Simulated assay, not measured.
Amino acid sequence: MSLINLPELSASPKLGAVQFDMRPDALERWEPSIRAAADDGPSISIYDRIGDSYDGEGVTAKRVSAALRNIGARDVTVNVNSPGGDFFQGVAIYNMLREHKAKVTVKVMGLAASAASVIAMAGDEILMGDGAFLMIHNAWAVAIGNRHDMMAAAEQLAPFDAAMAQVYAARAGMKPADAAAMMDKETWIGAQQAIDDGFASGLIQREQLSQDPEAHAHTKYLAMVEASMARAGHSRSVRREAIKSLFSGMPGAAEKKGAMPSAGADVAASLQTLINNMKGSV
């Protein structure tokens, strides 16, 4: 059980046409190479997107649950550097950490945005790295349909925003209305500001941080490609199938004699140009 009286979050995944997604601005500011310099006792690493991802690298509630079962009733450190992602997965992970029967220390190494910021609030102690940020905002989703679907989606999102405001308010010792106002503004909170405002309890020493340039170096840029496709209106399933096809070949292609195991040279070159342009802009 958490040492701090944190509210439980509940979220029904039955949202019709709504699909929760990462915010593009969070992706742009995310630096996947930032890591903990070393594990300090039992730990869980959240260094990727929240929820299932096209490459299987996303952090899911199932994975966190398995890690917590393995750790047992011992203190645990949760190292976070994530642009967020699936709201429901974030809620599930938050509740798991909140109910852990020993102390939970959350260390925000680089970024805890969106669903990852909700997860961070489950810590009995929350520490921020030098230059680290929390980013809080209203539930961000892609909705597909007619005007009635859009109105229904907005109505369905409102309770989630209210629930998140309760969580942030409980952590920071502020009124839920004040937390909601910060969410409306899509607020980025730096390390010292997070401590001053009550969202965090201390700083991480610089020697506890490290950078691994080889750690999923491609992840950020492919995630940005997916975000660009989302803004263009492509569904999650279409986006992920397209990215898989680019790097794995079309389904069944390996069975054809002489088939290339990856995307054609022209498509691959175009994607590489897009990725290079993204690298130059962040």
Rank of each mutant, 00 (worst) to 15 (best):
G252I: 03
S43F: 04
S2F: 05
V80M: 06
G198E: 04
T60E: 04
F133Y: 12
E186Q: 14
N138Y: 12
L271T: 12
K279A: 02
K279R: 12
A102N: 15
V267Y: 04
S210E: 09
A132G: 10
Q211Y: 01
D39L: 15
K220L: 10
S65H: 08
S33F: 13
I4D: 11
G129P: 11
Q193H: 15
K101D: 14
M128A: 05
L6R: 15
G85W: 01
K101Q: 15
A177N: 14
M174P: 09
M150I: 14
Q166I: 02
V108S: 08
Q192N: 15
V118K: 00
L68M: 14
V80E: 00
I189S: 07
A169T: 05
D75T: 13
M151I: 09
L15C: 06
N79K: 01
A116R: 04
H216K: 10
F199D: 03
S270Y: 00
V78C: 00
V104H: 03
R23L: 14
A37P: 10
A154G: 09
K185I: 04
A253V: 04
Q19V: 13
L111P: 07
K244G: 08
L134Y: 15
D40H: 09
A26T: 13
F199Y: 15
A180W: 01
E28Y: 04
A37D: 11
M250K: 14
D149L: 05
E241T: 10
V18W: 04
Q211L: 07
D75M: 01
H216E: 08
P159A: 04
R171T: 01
A122L: 03
Q272V: 00
G72L: 01
E241Q: 13
M224A: 08
S281P: 00
W30M: 11
L3I: 10
A215T: 06
M1C: 09
K14P: 00
D266P: 01
A223V: 05
A143F: 05
R69I: 01
A162L: 13
T187N: 12
S281K: 12
D48K: 04
T60R: 09
Q211I: 07
P32H: 03
S262G: 08
A200H: 11
E28T: 14
D21E: 11
R23E: 14
A200L: 12
Q211T: 11
R147Y: 01
Q156E: 12
A230V: 14
E226M: 12
G123Q: 07
M109N: 15
D130R: 12
A232D: 15
R69V: 03
H100M: 09
T60A: 02
N146M: 01
A259C: 08
A227N: 12
A153S: 09
G72T: 03
S117R: 03
S228M: 15
R206N: 06
F133S: 09
Q272G: 00
G90T: 07
E31G: 12
A232G: 13
S245Q: 12
A38R: 10
D196R: 02
I119D: 06
Q19L: 09
N146W: 02
D21V: 13
R23S: 10
Y47Q: 06
W188G: 06
S82I: 04
V142A: 14
S270P: 00
F88T: 13
D196F: 06
M182G: 06
